[in-house]
Nucleic acid binder design. Structure first.
Lengths: 142, 142
DNA sequence: ATAATTACTTTTAATATGCAAGTAAAAAAT
DNA sequence: ATTTTTTACTTGCATATTAAAAGTAATTAT
């Protein structure tokens, strides 16, 4: 469990205090790509996150208001996770990280349709994906 | 010591395998803001990195080609670290992370001249800072 | 009624972090 | 020339985090 104590008032440092680990942004990535995921969906991602870490990160991300857990329709066991507006606003950072990876990390796959679209027109891609994700106010409907 | 084994071929995951920890990007941040730093300079940053971790991260970042260690003029003890082109290309991601922090993390300070410039005109800021940092080819002059 | 899913929790070992102290080479001061 | 200080690390150790595997409890499907 990563405590939520800020090391300084630097915005970069404060941000990293929240998601500066090897897993949190991968959860955000999955929600960016697939819109909604269940707990089990996350465990099926390529990176094979351990279930205890997944549970911990989902909790921390929810506590930090980055993701939202909703009931799964007609099923009391499953839950549905999705990005909050705060989480959606992490996408620009995620895109820059992805572009850096494609450019510099050998063995990283830049051929996904997702990335092709990003490379073609970053602004347009961002606008498109923002539109497909739940809007600001919809997140608070009760 | 973080091993450099890629968890998957996803560019985001691969990138996080390199700098997805609480300290590496803060080192890059310092080099972005101050251009060059000595080992001692890093220890004086607000976040108070432990010296063993600093030594380890400087080594990893250098091994990964993100930073370059140069001799300090007229001093055989000191070294001078600076960003490589690969490290400079992390700045767009750093900017997005900073903007997210300013917007969402309470207690993070968005009043630095650096950030004001970024908010006023991101593209222009990027261009300016890129120009003040050593260029692509200069890094390989022997 | 029974078996299978799903979302976690628990346990234990390995690894990483954080803190304090130590070291060795060079530089500065005396 | 000798001592002191600076600089860049390294080492040792306690604590915290991670990873892997197994376990559990509440549904849901058969």
């Amino acid at each position: 469990m990563r405590p939520n104590k800020n090391r300084s008032d630097c915005p970069i440092s404060s941000s990293l205090d929240i998601f500066g680990d090897r897993w949190s942004l991968l959860i955000v990535r999955d929600l960016m790509l697939y819109k909604t995921r269940t707990y089990g969906d996350f465990t099926k991602s390529e990176e094979k996150i351990a279930t205890n870490i997944l549970a911990n990160r989902l909790q921390l991300l929810e506590e930090n208001g980055i993701i939202i857990k909703l009931p799964y329709p007609d099923n009391k066991v499953k839950g549905l996770y999705r990005l909050s507006p705060k989480g959606i606003d992490l996408i620009p950072a995620l895109i820059e990280i992805a572009l850096w990876g494609v450019k510099y990390v050998s063995g990283s796959d830049g051929s996904s349709p997702f990335l092709k679209e990003v490379k073609k027109n970053k602004t347009k891609f961002l606008k498109n994906i923002m539109d497909t994700l739940p809007a600001d106010d919809e997140a608070n409907v009760h």
